[in-house]
C-alpha cells in the first residue's frame, strides 16, 4: 500500500518536473538559484568569516574598485565583494526560514479551517481577513521594533505577518479536495480527521504550498532587506540590506560612491527575481490557465 503510494508520488513528481522543464524562465531561475546556493554554502571556504571583521580590515576605508578589491571597500576597509558573498548567507537563510514559517502557518490554518468548517472556520477566517487588511510591512516594522534585534526577530516578524494569503488559498483547495468522493470513502472506511488531513488533503495541497513558498521567499528577502535598511536587522551580522544601510550612513549617496551602493541592490534584485521566476513556473505548471511563464 505504501509502496504503491510512493510510486504514484514519484510518478507525479516526474510529471511535474517534465512540464516545469518547458518553462524556460523557470529553468533560468532555478539555475541562478543553484549557483547562488553553491556560492553561499562555500563562502566559509572562499572568503571566510574573517571578511566581517572590522578590526582586521585589509584595506583603507572607501577605496574604489581595484584589482585587489574588485568592488572596492566599505567604510571600515572591508572588501565589498567578500561582504557581498558572505551577506548572501544571511539573506538566503532569513528568506528561506521566513517563507517556510509563513507558509507553514498558512497551511496549518488553511487546512484546519477548510477541514473542520462551521463556526471554527468562520472565526479563523475572520482573523485571517483581519491580518490580510493589516499593512504587512508596517506590522513587520512594528514587531521588529518591539522585539530585540536578532536574525530570529526578523524571521518571526516576516513569517507572522505574511501567512494570510497562503491560508486563504490552502483553505479553498482543502474544501475543493474534501468534496471529492474518495474522501467520503476514506471516512466510510473509518479514517479519522487526522488521517484525512494528513494522508489525503495535505498531499493534494502540497504543490500549491510549494509554489507559495517559492514566491514567498522573494517577498521575504525583499522585506528582510527593507527591515535591515531601516536599521531593524541584527547589527552583528552582514546582510545585503545592512550593507545598503551602511552605505547610506557612510554618505555614499551624496558623495556619489555608486560602487558601494549598487552591488547589494543588484544581488537582492537577482535573487528575488530568480525565486519569482521559479514560483511562477511552478504555478503555471499547476494551473496552465494562468498563462504565465513560457
Amino acid at each position: 500500500m505504501t509502496s504503491l503510494a510512493w510510486e504514484r508520488r514519484k510518478g507525479s513528481a516526474a510529471r511535474l518536473w517534465r512540464s516545469y522543464r518547458s518553462h524556460r524562465a523557470g529553468l533560468y531561475g532555478l539555475a541562478g538559484l543553484a549557483a547562488l546556493a553553491l556560492l553561499a554554502l562555500t563562502a566559509p571556504l572562499t572568503v571566510g568569516a574573517d571578511v566581517q571583521s572590522v578590526t582586521h580590515a585589509p584595506g583603507t576605508a572607501l577605496e574604489p574598485p581595484s584589482a585587489r578589491f574588485p568592488l572596492g571597500t566599505d567604510r571600515f576597509g572591508r572588501s565589498l565583494l567578500g561582504l557581498l558573498v558572505w551577506g548572501a548567507r544571511i539573506s538566503l537563510l532569513v528568506g528561506l526560514l521566513a517563507a517556510v514559517l509563513s507558509v507553514a502557518i498558512g497551511t496549518l490554518v488553511g487546512v484546519l479551517a477548510g477541514h473542520y468548517g462551521g463556526w471554527f472556520s468562520t472565526v479563523v477566517m475572520r482573523i485571517t481577513d483581519w491580518f490580510l487588511v493589516m499593512p504587512t510591512l508596517v506590522l513587520a516594522i512594528v514587531l521588529a521594533t518591539v522585539m530585540s534585534r536578532s536574525v530570529w526577530t526578523v524571521v518571526l516578524a516576516i513569517g507572522v505577518t505574511s501567512w494570510p494569503t497562503t491560508a486563504r488559498l490552502v483553505r479553498a483547495q482543502t474544501i475543493a479536495v474534501e468534496s471529492r468522493p474518495y474522501i467520503e470513502r476514506a471516512t466510510a472506511l473509518g479514517g479519522g480527521h487526522r488521517h484525512v488531513m494528513a494522508r489525503h488533503v495535505l498531499p493534494n495541497v502540497m504543490p500549491l504550498v510549494l509554489a507559495q513558498t517559492t514566491l514567498g521567499i522573494s517577498a521575504a528577502i525583499l522585506t528582510e532587506a527593507t527591515l535591515a535598511f531601516l536599521g531593524l536587522g541584527d547589527p552583528t551580522v552582514v546582510s545585503w540590506g545592512g550593507m545598503l544601510q551602511d552605505a547610506r550612513e557612510a554618505g555614499a549617496v551624496s558623495s556619489g560612491h555608486w560602487w558601494y551602493l549598487a552591488p547589494p541592490g543588484i544581488a537582492i534584485a537577482l535573487v528575488a527575481l530568480a525565486f519569482t521566476l521559479c514560483g511562477r513556473a511552478v504555478e503555471s505548471v499547476l494551473n496552465p490557465r494562468l498563462g504565465v511563464g513560457r
Binding site: 525583499l222 532587506a225 545598503l244 556619489g256 555608486w258 541592490g265 534584485a269 527575481l273 519569482t276
Partner: peptide, 28 residues
C-alpha cells in the same frame, strides 16, 4: 515586457531611489 516588469518588481524600492538620487540628483 514581462521580463522587465518582473525584474523591476524584484528591486528594493529604497535602493532604486538611492541610485536615482546618485545618478540624477548628485550627478554621475
Amino acid at each position: 515586457n514581462t521580463g522587465i516588469a518582473l525584474t523591476l518588481w524584484s528591486v528594493p524600492s529604497f535602493w532604486l531611489g538611492l541610485l536615482l538620487i546618485i545618478v540624477f540628483s548628485v550627478g554621475a
